[in-house]
Structure formats: C-alpha cells, structure tokens
C-alpha cells in the first residue's frame, strides 16, 4: 500500500500575497460567488464559463499557487470526473449529451480551482472567525477547532502504527490480509483516539469546563 498519510493542508499563517490580505469574509463569499455563478451559466454560454476559468487561474497565480501543485491536485481530480461525465453520452446516444458533458467538465474544474484558491488563502483561524461572525453555532465552531487540532496528531499516530506494521510484515501480503491489517490499524487508531478523548475531557474539566463554550470576542 502506497497511500499518502495526510492530504495537502491549506494555508499557513505565514503566507503573504495580495489575495491573502483580503478580509476573510470576502475570500469565502467570493469563492462561493464564483461557484454559484459557474453553476448558473447555461449550457450554451460556455465562453462565459471559459472566461471564469481564466479569471480563477489569474486569482490562483496572484495567490502564489505553483503550477506543480495545481497539476498534482488536478491529476487526482480529473480522472474520476472524466469517467463520471463520460457515462452520460455513452448511455444516451443524443448529441446534446456530449455538450452537456463538456460543460460539466468545465464547470466542475472551475469550481475545483476556486476551492483550491480558497484553501490556499484562508487559514483555519480566519475561517473560524468568519463562521463566528456568520452566526454559526459556537459548539460547531469549537468542534471544528478541536477536530483540526487532533487530526494531524492522529495522522502522525497512523504513520507510526503503519511503520510498526511494515517493520513486521515482510511483503507479499494477499489482498485479504491487507484488508484485515488495515481494518486492525483503524481499530487501533480508534481505541487510542477514544482514550485520548477521555484524557482531553479530563484536562478540560480540570480547567473548569462545564459544557458551555466561552470564547474571546476580538479576533486579533
């Protein structure tokens, strides 16, 4: 198994560019706007969709996203979309379906690239403050923060468990064995993480946690 252990994390606080300087609300609204507009552009207006694609590309280069990064993400994204879109004209032998598929590919790519721009310019801290301003329930925001904090720790743990497994596994595992080992890996991760959740809960109680969330008002 040659799986990667963590997906590409998005923005870090240290990045700086024209796009990074925008207010966080504007970043999120702008991306949503592009996605909605792209979804609303009718089939026959594909040149407009193309213009949108160019605009998103320009935004990406302004934000300092490298071509290599884009190519890597697109290489993972496009094949599934390709197969999905192709199943329409293959099943319904009408000429219209081909047009539809092409515009679907274009539309999905525009939205995907807009999403890449967003993750590149919006770090978690800004996202949480936007959600707070947009009146997202505070419990949900606390859970998002909590999850983001621990998901990296769990990835590290998974990596350690996997190398421990690889050190004892001398290759040539059958598919069935790979499945049972991977399931066991997840089970072990689950047990450890639940135990960690119990400990964290205790640590929260020790600092006066009673289930209600209080947070600092300002977002400096």
């Amino acid at each position: 198994m040659s799986d990667s252990c963590s997906p590409d994390a998005g923005a870090t606080a240290s990045d700086t560019s024209l796009c990074h300087g925008l207010p966080a609300d504007a970043k999120l609204s702008l991306t949503l706007l592009v996605v909605v507009v792209s979804g609303l552009i009718p089939l026959e207006h594909w040149p407009a969709q193309g213009l949108l694609l160019v605009a998103v590309f320009m935004a990406l280069s302004l934000a300092g996203v490298t071509v290599r990064y884009l190519a890597r993400r697109l290489a993972l994204f496009l094949p599934a979309l390709f197969v999905f879109g192709l199943s329409i004209p293959v099943a319904s032998a009408e000429g219209l379906a081909w047009n539809w598929t092409l515009s679907l590919w274009l539309r999905c790519t525009v939205s995907f690239l807009a999403g890449l721009w967003l993750i590149h310019v919006l770090p978690l801290r800004e996202l949480l403050s936007v959600l707070r301003r947009w009146h997202c329930p505070v419990v949900l925001i606390a859970m998002i923060g909590f999850m983001y904090r621990y998901v990296f720790i769990l990835w590290d743990e998974l990596r350690r468990l996997r190398s421990a497994r690889d050190a004892r596994d001398f290759g040539g595992a059958s598919t069935w064995r790979e499945w049972t080992i991977s399931a066991q890996l997840i089970g072990l991760l689950l047990l450890r993480a639940m135990e960690r959740a119990e400990r964290t809960h205790r640590a929260m109680l020790a600092r006066g946690w009673d289930g209600s969330i209080r947070s600092l008002d300002d977002d400096r």
Binding site: R125, G145, F146, R149, R196, T200, A203, M204, A206, R207
Partner: peptide, 15 residues
C-alpha cells in the same frame, strides 16, 4: 488546584 497532564497534546486542544 491546577493540573498539568503528562501528554501536552491531551491538554492543548485549541487551534
């Protein structure tokens, strides 16, 4: 009573 736990990752849960 303040309590310092063994594993700092158990205690630091905020972003």
């Amino acid at each position: 009573v303040g309590f310092l736990f063994q594993d700092p990752d158990d205690q630091l849960f905020c972003p």
